[in-house]
Design a protein around this nucleic acid. Structure first.
Lengths: 195, 195, 195, 195
DNA sequence: AATGAATGAGGCTTCATTCAT
DNA sequence: TATGAATGAAGCCTCATTCAT
């Protein structure tokens, strides 16, 4: 039954997201799916096949949302808006993104999907935005591909810290202060010109 | 003997980088190091400690020298020096660091030691540096914990892109340009002030 | 299957009785039970649990029937019945119980489960019985927890003497006389009231 | 050096008393003795030899004290005095006694020493006391060997419970109440004659 | 098609004992 | 004689996968 297959896939997604691949057991997935352990193997020949299927369905369903919306307005507002928007989306899908990211590190096929479907398309839009602002004289003539990645990196490290590494336990940041600081650094740098 | 400890550490680094953490066996590490399996456990209480120690020694080793060097010279030089140093370190040990990062995503136990012994200590130093420069009026009064992480994030995203995800296949960046751009953005921002 | 569980329990009982706890291996128990080593762990999470279960099932098995039987009849009969029943039980399983006792002396983890699941439950029943007889005016108003243990102690020392220490070689007691004497002392004491 | 040998023996005694034989490690004994692990094996060929030596020295030094003093006076006082005296002695030497007892269960040679040197001599004295009181018409004409063991059993079970099994964690008894109750039961039984 | 009990290879870790220094 | 680093056999336990029902 197709129904059964989907249940197993969904359950596997939840378990993998919680524990990662190696530390998830087929027993736990079976329990979560409400089927017998053996049943899993009628639909997926090995545990690894199950992972590939989980991740494939993720790419098709959740990640495209990361591409939505590029705002306009003052640059300040636009940047903050982009950051906030991305941040919210990531936070909603953090567990699965984390799994996806972890697996992408070691699987060529997953990486390709990830880079092509998500990274390149997202950065392409952002780069276009940067270029457009550059032409209007609002932004300095830096390499947009690099400049855009710098912004994403600043956001990314806080996402990784909090959502992927559970760094909250050690140092907790106020979200608004972080977005504010990233924006101001990105626009004006850290150098003090007031003296 | 300290010598023996280093041999095991080095061998473990090679094996982990080759196979990943879970799929490396202590038997293979022992073989690679030319010691008995039990010997490993004279130096490292668990396999997990071994991994943490391998990575920690990598990351911390060059840190004191780096920080000392930074004490003198302009901020610009300091930042470039930090970026250069960390980048080289990562490039040389990319496979191992990648593995560690992937493991850390799903293993609280791995993270704890590493965050406490490496991340927090290293960032504390950097934050102190930032504060000191702040007091001298060289840097703006931003939250140093956030400001420091912003710089690391900018570098991090290029490392992840190239070393962890093999992004070179899609977009290749000139290393010097990247470091230059990060430095200038970090210090002066992207806003065009009509110069 | 419940059947399989019992097989393992029985095999474990034999092996433990033969070799002691630490020197019994799960491999041997599995061989003796005619199952794969891993199978043991489907039924008992750890080797320690296996030992506790073996002994607990021994001690608790005949308890409900015993207590029920005791409800009716004189106190004298009840006490003799209890003593007889426990004595037979111990005699049949002396090597295993001896081993368990020896292990329990130095393993907090073993004791905890056993005391909580067996000792406290069994004594609670006996204490309830004592209280009930007390209310009927058949027994003196002593602390039931202490009074019950006194009875068990009298029996216990003969068990330890004969079954655990092989004291038969030095002094041999007639079983019936022992049970008779314990009963009469427990009920009426050793003081001569000049009858 | 003979000095060194004694240090190791004493350290081993402490460690064995704490953890029992199987769970004590030669490493811990060496640490406790302040010598290198290898040194132990210059004095005692195997770990088991070490145990035998520890226990042998115990029998020669500590146990004989258990035989001291048999009081006279009223029977009540005599019994309470005996109980209290034994209890105090046992409590002082509980850890080593426990070790000794545990090992005696499985070692013929130790058992013999224990029974001959301690048990038989102690009971012989007590039996003589019982007989003497019997002749004076103070005690019932029961088999003194059995009657004496009954008293010791009542005391013994509380010692085992508290000192050997750490039962205090579960049920704690007031020492005076216990001695009082044992004495009264032993002398007068539990049967209520008041009705 | 579904079950879930059973498997057994293989991993990490412990620790008494050895031996070169 | 003392050291303590090194050994390696052996043990407990995990878990993906199989297969009789």
């Amino acid at each position: 039954m197709e129904e059964r297959r989907r249940e197993i896939l969904a359950a596997a997604g939840r378990v993998f997201a919680r524990k990662g691949f190696e530390r998830s057991t087929t027993a736990e997935i079976a329990r979560e799916a409400g089927v017998a352990e053996g049943t899993i193997f009628r639909y997926f020949p090995t545990k690894r096949d199950l992972l590939v299927s989980v991740v494939a369905s993720l790419v098709m369903e959740s990640l495209p949302a990361l591409l939505e919306r590029i705002e306009t307005g003052t640059i300040e507002d636009a940047i903050k808006d982009i950051l906030r928007n991305r941040l919210d989306l990531i936070k909603e899908n953090a567990p699965l993104l984390k799994l996806f990211f972890a697996e992408a590190l070691f699987r060529e096929d997953l990486r390709e999907k990830f880079i092509e479907e998500v990274v390149l398309r997202a950065t392409a839009r952002a780069e276009a935005f940067y270029r457009q602002q550059q032409e209007q004289g609002n932004l300095r003539p830096l390499n947009p591909q690099i400049a855009i990645r710098c912004l994403m990196g600043m956001l990314g490290i806080f996402v990784i810290w909090k959502e992927f590494l559970g760094g909250d336990k050690y140092v907790r940041f106020d979200e608004e202060e972080v977005l504010e600081t990233i924006t101001t650094i990105y626009l004006d740098g850290v150098r003090d010109r007031g003296r």
